[in-house]
């Protein structure tokens, strides 16, 4: 497997290497798009991450949505940033070089308001050094098709993915929206289009009202819900995608600790992305990586790969499965233990 040759930038002890097709990663933890930037490099060593993911870029410059763009909700948050973008040329000239200060592979997230915009971006980025893979954020409205989210249409997703795959020399990841009836169907369309991997999921559309003004809290009326509150939904969707396709799945949604990430790996994710938790604690991803390493070591696994997709759905699993209580080192809050903050 190609990961055998991947350079190891950091010694975790246990073997945490995973692969997304030809792209080998040191460990299975990466940030979620929009919840990461090279600015974090002044807070911790970004070489420790499995990969870095950029905020979604568009072909042209975009201004983004009006304030408020953020609202806190129980166990999560709403955002409607609206994906401001300086455009692809500014990205290549000013933003991408920032990422290249680290050896960690950089995955560039692409957005578009038409199928062709994704293709144009792929054309523009073809051969640009420092891009390890492309992630297609299809949770964007297709303005040429009545503004309906591209990611809700299997045909459009397949067209977007196929066009980008045809124009790229790097792996293409399709990032799915959870705001659909059948995520399995969209996953299959991504695989048919030639995607190397699938990320599931983006934010769930939500709303909050200010009772003083009776106006929506979010300037854009509605926003995307993220954080621990969506984890059970995201986990279920990753499991559904896992069963629907044979390409690797990247699990995303509400992951804050190693125990959350391990649940996603067990249901079949090869890699996990951490979004909102990085706001809560900018070093959250390091806690996830360390906790996964501890789990692999404590369970005597040969590598993290031995855990992926090992969900037991057979009857009697509870009796025959090995001890399922997670070690404290995974960060599982067995009981609220505030003093544990010392170990973070």
């Amino acid at each position: 497997m190609s990961t055998q040759n991947a350079p190891r930038r950091h010694d975790y002890g246990p073997d945490l290497r995973v692969a997304l097709g030809p792209l080998g990663l040191d460990n299975p933890v990466m940030p979620a798009s929009g919840c990461f930037g090279p600015e974090l490099g002044s807070l911790f060593d970004l070489n420790r991450l499995g990969a870095m993911v950029t905020k979604t870029i568009f072909f042209g410059a975009r201004s983004g949505n009006p304030a408020h763009r953020l609202a806190e909700t129980p166990g999560g948050m709403l955002n409607s940033v609206g994906i401001p973008s300086r455009g692809v040329d500014a990205f290549v000239e000013q933003i991408l070089p920032e990422y290249r200060r680290w050896q960690t592979p950089t995955i560039v997230s692409l957005g578009g308001l038409s199928v062709e915009e994704y293709w144009d971006l792929a054309d523009r980025l073809r051969g640009v050094p420092g891009i390890a893979a492309l992630e297609l954020n299809v949770s964007c409205p297709n303005l040429e098709a009545g503004g309906i989210e591209m990611g809700a249409s299997p045909a459009q997703v397949e067209a977007v993915v196929r066009g980008v795959v045809d124009r790229s020399t790097v792996p293409v990841i399709s990032k799915l929206t959870p705001n659909v009836t059948s995520i399995a169907e969209i996953a299959r369309a991504s695989e048919a289009g030639g995607a190397t991997a699938i990320t599931a999921v983006n934010t769930l559309v939500g709303m909050a009202v200010d009772l003083d003004t009776r106006a929506p809290v979010i300037g854009n009326m509605v926003g995307g819900l993220s954080g621990p509150a969506i984890k059970p939904i995201a986990l279920r969707m990753v499991w559904e995608v896992r069963k629907a396709v044979s390409i690797p799945v990247i699990g995303c949604g509400g992951i804050a600790r190693a125990c959350d990430a391990l649940e996603f790996l067990v249901v079949g994710a090869t890699v996990v992305q951490v979004g909102t938790a990085t706001f809560t604690r900018p070093d959250a991803m390091l806690g996830v990586i360390d906790g996964i390493a501890d789990y692999v070591r404590d369970r005597g696994l040969e590598s993290i790969r031995d855990l992926i997709g090992t969900l037991r759905t057979d009857r009697g699993a509870a009796e025959t499965a090995p001890e399922l209580t997670l070690a404290a080192s995974t960060g599982h809050p067995a009981q609220p233990a505030p003093s544990r903050s010392v170990q973070r």
Partner: peptide, 10 residues
């Protein structure tokens, strides 16, 4: 959010 907690997220 205190040590054992994951929220408030912001």
């Amino acid at each position: 959010a205190r040590g054992g907690e994951d929220s408030p997220v912001l």
